[in-house]
Design a protein around this nucleic acid. Structure first.
Length: 467
RNA sequence: GGUGAGGUGGCAGAGCGGCUAUGCGUUCGCCUGCAAAGCGAAUCUAUAGGGGUUCGAAUCCCUUCCUCACCUCCA
């Protein structure tokens, strides 16, 4: 598989020979997650599902930043503890991302639980001369790391003249960043240099090193983390270990709204909770995967609405397949569907293999859906055809993390009973009563399609609230 | 100002030297007792402007214009 690597600015072959280790920078838990966070996480979740579908062992680590000024500020404004704030939003995170059908990572390390590792790392950095203690904390000396700027393609002298660097006389160089900040208030931890809190960047260095070692396969996050976060992580980690930090740096484009980046500071966010209620997990996932991961996507309601139409086609396809009748299939149909299944499957996986092009993969997926629906529409979809299509369709659904709404066995019996009842009424030309039965079913989310020889039912996902 | 990524039909979005995806939308049909869904057909020949290279460019080069992101916390 090839993935575009931000560092080398090339498509790099992913080494899967010893499994794939992935570290994804997660969220700072001081507020609700929004669809921007969700996109990055969905992209990586899908990547992970794809790799696993290829029989590759994946070790997936995603952190929670649970020590941060924003958390503390929030705690102060709510007169509670930082710990309460972060645990609340971690709990929310799991509720929301479980709903988004995001597979749980192998581990969700928290910064607060890895203070010791961070201190060890800082100790070594000081010993090696890459870091120094000042009156406000411990700083990393950027000038000591000669590759500084290699990820973000920034020149050190340009950064200095950039004027946006925080002025702090206690630092040797304005570019130096904090590894440890002394603090008088809670939360704080003891360290050899004085009580305080870790800097933001050091946590990812410490936790990725602890769980994935050096030179692991993929380090990822949103594009906005390239500088300074990932640049600084590289500086710390490589200065510490003397080894390459990560093989591939994979960055996900921003979600925009009205063409502008969605962010807390601009106040234009759509929370995961909100979009889940409005669109549901399948629509959100399809939306997040509709374009290439590296490019921005715009949160536009019209597009989301269109996605609903497409999702209905998938539901239709799925139920046509699982409810297909017994009976022989035309050998020509078998032949053509075999061809389509083979082709779309190849296209689907080839697309993902080449820089994870989900846009093309989804295109292949819909080709299969469409071909199936065509056969169904012409009343020729029988079990032998379904047996060919269904496993592949389910595999694709699984990789994309899409979930068809299903019914219980009990509901199924009830549905069949009502369909029988309606059929009887229809045969007696009691259409009004028949329509009442149909209404009863549709109110329960069961849509009917009258085929020539049978009635197809579909459990439709309920989407949106007065869109 | 610096750096990076882009500008493709009404919209979304691939292609990254030749065969100009795909989807949505729109229109008209089919199916149906009716409806919804689904299906079919039609519609749309698009590649920011200007130069070049080439037998041939959306695809390569130059240039102009525009957009976005990063350069501060950010997924």
């Amino acid at each position: 598989m090839k993935i575009f690597d931000t560092l080398s600015v090339t498509e790099k072959e992913l080494d899967t020979s010893n499994g794939v280790r992935i570290y994804l920078c997660g969220v700072t838990v001081y507020d609700d997650s929004h669809i921007g966070h969700a996109r990055t996480i969905i992209v990586f979740d899908t990547l992970r599902r794809f790799l696993e579908s290829q029989g590759i062992k994946v070790k997936f680590i995603q952190n929670f930043t649970d020590v941060d000024d924003k958390i503390i500020n929030r705690a102060v404004s709510e007169s509670t503890s930082a710990d309460k704030i972060s645990s609340r939003y971690i709990s929310n995170y799991f509720t929301e991302f479980d709903h988004l059908n995001v597979k749980r990572a192998d581990m969700y390390p928290k910064a607060t639980e890895h203070i010791e590792s961070m201190i060890d790392l800082i100790k070594t950095l000081i010993e090696k001369g890459f870091a120094y203690v000042s009156t406000n904390g411990v700083y990393f000396s950027v000038s000591k790391f000669h590759d500084y700027g290699k990820l973000s393609k920034k020149k050190i002298d340009e950064l200095v003249s950039g004027a946006r660097v925080e002025v702090d006389d206690t630092k040797k160089d304005p570019l130096d960043f904090a590894l440890w900040k002394f603090a008088d208030d809670e939360p704080r931890w003891q360290s050899p240099w004085g009580a305080g809190r870790p800097g933001w960047h050091i946590e990812c260095s410490a936790m990725s090193l602890k769980y994935l070692g050096t030179d692991f396969e993929i380090h990822g996050g949103g594009r906005d983390l390239i500088f300074p976060h990932h640049e600084n992580e590289i500086a710390q980690s490589e200065s510490y270990s003397g080894k390459n930090f990560a093989k591939i740096w994979m960055h996900v484009g921003m979600v925009t709204i009205g063409g502008e980046k969605m962010s807390k500071s601009l106040g234009n966010t759509k929370s995961v909770d909100f979009v889940l209620k409005k669109w549901g997990a399948n629509i959100i996932r399809l939306f997040c995967l509709a374009g290439h991961y590296s490019k921005p996507i715009d949160y536009a309601e019209d597009m989301l609405k269109e996605t609903i139409t497409k999702w209905r086609q998938v539901e239709n396809c799925y139920y046509e397949l699982i409810l297909s009748g017994e009976g022989p299939a035309d050998s020509k149909d078998i032949e053509s569907i075999e061809k389509i299944v083979t082709e779309t499957k190849k296209e689907f996986f080839d697309s993902l293999n080449y820089d994870f092009n989900t846009s093309l993969a989804i295109g292949a997926f819909f080709k299969l859906v469409k071909a199936t629906n065509q056969i169904a529409a012409s009343e020729r979809l029988t079990k032998p055809i379904s047996d060919l299509v269904l496993p592949v369709l389910e595999q694709m659904l699984d990789v994309l993390g899409l979930k068809i709404s299903k019914v219980t066995e009990e509901e199924r019996k009830k549905i069949h009973a009502l369909i029988d009842k309606r059929n009887l009424l229809r045969s007696e030309k009691k259409f009004q009563e028949a329509d009442a039965v149909r209404k009863e079913l549709s109110d329960a989310g069961i849509m009917l399609t009258d085929h020539k020889n049978k009635v197809l039912w579909i459990k439709q996902e309920k989407i949106g609230d007065g869109i």
